[in-house]
């Protein structure tokens, strides 16, 4: 349904162009939850913003294309892009406390969005807004609709945000760290709500997060990003249980498990490189425990190995030997 092909995002700075997202390719299938994980600065949020055309300048799409149901959407004129936002692609931001306009009631923000994209009457929109709020689990939605955002708790506000993102039934919802700002006890509720709402509305989800636990809980497929590049994409069970790329292995090893007693969690030495000095070859090579000469010289391509795609010379050679 959504295809991102060779997406490259650059920032022009005084020191020359910085490539923040480099040659990223993936596909989201209808109705699925697609996870996008990586450390802060890996380019996952930028990828999400570029899909909905909200990349903040000076960032821009320097290459590649994004298509939704066969139509290119990365070079749309403003009016077409606007019609697409909300209607076909919804977005949920990280912080529910700042995502809602403090000066308008949540009802006004909901009906405004519904009316923008449909020819309903005010009363119909109001009714739909109440139905939506009830759906996302706001008790007494009929009265609460006239409340202002500050009268809701963080978790409740994120429920309202989900209702807002889904109010015109988009096919795709980009959820950028939707639970990061919330209490751990609320996180699971919001995640399952997001999953249920998207299933009921038939929307696919791109779930952007740095939390592998969240991905394991709700996603069907997952892409791991490092330094603006994809290092591994695959079925979530495969990637979580048997990660192949050394970076993905490191990430998984760093999650404490309830089922197995682990004496020491794995730690990936070093930090992610800054955009100004991304290493040659494979961007991960200075931190990689399995690095060899080829890694330093040449960037590994994304190769299909079993059911996953992995960008690592370790496996490219293996595949080569096997084939």
């Amino acid at each position: 349904m959504l295809k991102v092909e060779n997406l490259t995002i650059r920032f022009d700075t005084r020191y020359g162009p910085l490539t923040a997202v480099d040659d990223v390719t993936f596909e989201v299938r209808p109705g699925e939850v697609f996870g996008l994980v990586g450390e802060s600065g890996a380019g996952k949020s930028l990828t999400g913003q570029s899909i909905i055309g909200l990349l903040d300048p000076p960032g821009y799409i320097a290459g590649g294309q994004i298509t939704l149901e066969g139509t290119r959407i990365d070079n749309l004129a403003y009016n077409h892009l606007r019609a697409l936002r909300g209607r076909k692609i919804g977005m949920i931001f990280q912080d529910p406390l700042t995502s809602l306009n403090p000066l308008y009631t949540i009802g006004k923000q909901l009906t405004e969005t519904i009316l923008t994209h449909s020819s309903m009457t005010n009363a119909e929109a109001q009714k739909q807004a109440i139905a939506l709020l009830t759906d996302v689990g706001i008790p007494g939605a009929g009265e609460r609709i006239n409340c202002y955002p500050h009268q809701f708790s963080g978790g409740m506000r994120q429920r309202v945000v989900i209702a807002l993102a889904l109010c015109v039934n988009p096919q795709l919802v980009i959820a950028d760290e939707p639970t990061t700002a919330l209490d751990v006890s609320i996180q699971a509720q919001i995640l399952s709500l997001l999953k249920r709402m998207c299933r009921e509305h038939g929307a696919a989800v791109i779930l952007i997060t740095h939390d592998m636990g969240v991905i394991a809980q709700v996603a069907q497929r997952v892409a791991v990003m490092y330094s603006g590049r994809l290092v591994e994409i695959g079925d979530v069970r495969q990637v979580v249980k048997h990660p192949q790329h050394p970076y993905a292995r490191g990430l998984m090893g760093s999650i404490p498990s309830l089922h197995h007693q682990v004496d020491q969690l794995t730690q990936i030495d070093g930090t992610m490189p800054r955009l100004t000095d991304i290493p040659s070859g494979c961007a991960f090579h200075p931190r990689c425990p399995d690095c060899f000469d080829l890694c330093k010289d040449k960037r590994p391509p994304l190769k299909k190995i079993a059911d996953s795609h992995i960008a690592c010379w370790l496996y490219a050679n293996e595949a080569h030997h096997a084939g």
């Binding site: 909905i52 909200l54 606007r82 936002r85 919804g90 977005m91 931001f93 700042t98 809602l100 923008t116």
Partner: peptide, 17 residues
């Protein structure tokens, strides 16, 4: 620059609104 303006844009509201 605030999130709620970004969110309003992401919902497809017109520039004017």
């Amino acid at each position: 620059r605030t999130d709620y303006i970004k969110f309003a844009r992401a919902r497809g509201l017109s520039n004017r609104a």
